[in-house]
Design a protein around this nucleic acid. Structure first.
Lengths: 353, 353
DNA sequence: TGTTAGCACTCCTATTCAATGAGTGCTAAA
DNA sequence: TTTAGCACTCATTGAATAGGAGTGCTAACA
């Protein structure tokens, strides 16, 4: 365990490096941080911290910079939580002020706000259908064999899609399907619905045409929707001044599939999660850090949002921001879901009577 | 008018600069291009070309580089059209092979392909509703006052939107509105429909609720949808090796509104259009060139696609590419529109009987 | 025993300087 | 009109140098 002095010095080093982006030497610490220690003492202490793996040298006669372990300790134990300024909060509220009733609009806006406030790159992973529970289905026949499918999930998300079929199905047939589906599939995880259909329902309905339609309805491209905001912000930070490195980072940011996977992996219940450098377990972004949080609908986690930026990141501020945004998005989505769900419930009730 | 030799030399200079990105000197031209002229002669000639405004020096003892005027002359008169390689063509076809039935999927995919083949940044401006003609409207009531509006334009584009209303309108009322709208608004430009509604229809239907609904249906956010593909490609080109400049370029690329406006301005009938450097009439991208073409549905221009990249651009290849893509997109969209339109027509016929 | 001052040492960074060489413009000869 | 030759310009490169920030060690001090 680190003693009090080591903690203070580590904290000073990390803080200084985060704000200046320059390796920090014993002298500057002694001056700026009023520790009442001489540079020499601090040097000794820093040497110890280096031996323990919290700090490192870029080269022998340079100041110290934090290692991943150093950042980690800082984030876990040293950092004092810095709340968003009220100015920033009102700014966020303002950005959210135009009415948003479409889910992709909310996602897009949120990724923008994240990047705007943090000066890093904002990420939002849209609610994951795979993980949702089936609640209700509506089918509306359109012209020319097209069918509008309206899928409502257990968390009240509404997903509209237009499906193309070869032949027009008569309205009564659709009604049949609907009744069957809504009666039998309720509360089944969407992920497992397809097997259920082929196992159970295939027996009950003979028509191959209908089976094909159901199959279409419950198939979606697995690529989850990832919204990125403020990619260019990466360029603002000095660690990416050389293009060779920056390019590979940009390439990584372009690979949504990769990012989506990492985000999914970080999903957890315990509020804001921080991955520093190598902790992302991905070579391409091993010089970046990732701050994420799940957002919820009615308390149930449905998606992930966060920020990605250089390892040297303003963790305290960013953590507050991500936390705040997760709450806001959860609230907005929960509201949205209530209207949708109450409607379908009401309808179901009517059907029962 | 330039004489034959000057043309040859200008062509050689532009070609060489485009491929090497280095100012080109008289010696290298004499060697590479088999003009059977000595460097000295070429020097004289290049001096003339400079005086005429086709070439310039970055500094006194450097080689020549083309001016905007030089590029322009090259594009208009010197360049030999270079077709896409059959390899590239099959690559494009392959990228288009998955079935695409949603318009935004086509737009997205097209911008990707443009950037992939060209190594520049691809742009696609989605079909502009403002310029379309009203053809047909369908309204489908959903749960909780939501209404699905399906708008079919004169060019056969289908635009689906879900509209939120305060109160549920009975189905008969919707039918009323539909009949009225489809009977009276056919072939009216969408741009002018709103004034028409407030002028004419207001008199015929008394209900404020319905008027409000119509208003919503024909209101959409003017921000046209611009799809960008391959933003990072910008970093591949040496003219953007210094970040200061690059950043402003990236910022410009982030301003979709700006780009959309420029693209719209370039819309014209005459195939591929080329804007070089300052010709874009926009300070922020005065070091970039823009190659665009409209794409059509049933021969009627509906949107713009193209490529943006450094002024030193492989014009011949890019022009072929943009031309090719405009044709492909036109074909795909036209096919899409036929199915949609034939359906609504069929329906209309049925209604008449 | 822990802290501090002093000092030699390292090594990055910035700067200067000269050499290099690509390229020009001009002049005179072919 | 074309070409060869030559003096001149100027960006680029590399080496050498000075400067400075920072360390590690040692010895003195409290």
């Amino acid at each position: 365990m680190l003693d009090e002095r080591k903690k203070k010095i580590l904290k000073a080093v990390v803080h200084n490096y985060i704000t200046t982006a320059m390796p920090v030497g014993s002298r500057s610490i002694a001056k700026k941080y009023r520790l009442d220690l001489s540079p020499a003492t601090i040097r000794n202490c820093m040497a110890d911290l280096e031996e323990l793996g919290y700090l490192t040298h870029p080269h022998i006669s340079a100041g110290r910079i934090p290692t991943d372990k150093g950042y980690r300790f800082y984030v876990n134990s040293l950092m004092e939580r810095k709340d968003l300024s009220s100015e920033e909060k009102t700014r966020i509220e303002k950005e959210y002020s135009h009415r948003m009733n479409k889910i992709d609009q909310i996602m897009e806006e949120t990724s923008q706000v994240l990047s705007l406030i943090s000066h890093y790159t904002g990420l939002v992973l849209a609610p994951n259908l795979e993980k949702s529970i089936f609640h209700h289905l509506e089918l509306v026949p359109l012209e020319n064999g097209r069918i509008l499918s309206i899928l409502i999930t257990g968390s009240g998300l509404v997903k509209n899609r237009i499906i193309e079929t070869e032949e027009t199905l008569p309205k009564e047939r659709l009604g049949e399907i609907l009744n069957l589906v809504n009666a039998r599939l309720s509360n089944l995880p969407l992920k497992r619905i397809k097997e259920f259909i082929s196992d159970q329902l295939k027996i009950e309905t003979s028509s191959a045409k209908i089976w094909e339609l159901m199959n279409q309805i419950f198939t979606w491209d697995g690529v989850e929707e990832l919204y990125l905001g403020g990619r260019i912000n990466i360029l603002e930070h000095p660690e990416f001044k050389d293009l060779a490195r920056t390019k590979s980072v940009f390439q990584a940011l372009e690979e949504k599939r990769l990012l989506a996977e990492i985000l999914n992996r970080t999903a957890s219940n315990e509020g804001v999660k921080v991955l520093i450098g190598k902790e992302t377990r991905c070579r391409k972004i091993r010089d970046l850090s990732l701050i994420t949080s799940v957002y919820r609908i009615n308390g149930r986690p449905v998606g992930v949002l966060g920020i990605i930026g250089p390892r040297r990141m303003e963790y305290s501020k960013v953590i507050s921001l991500v936390n705040f945004m997760a709450k806001i998005v959860s609230k907005v989505l929960t509201n949205l879901s209530h209207t949708a769900k109450s409607l379908s419930e009401e309808k179901a009730e009517r059907n029962v009577r």
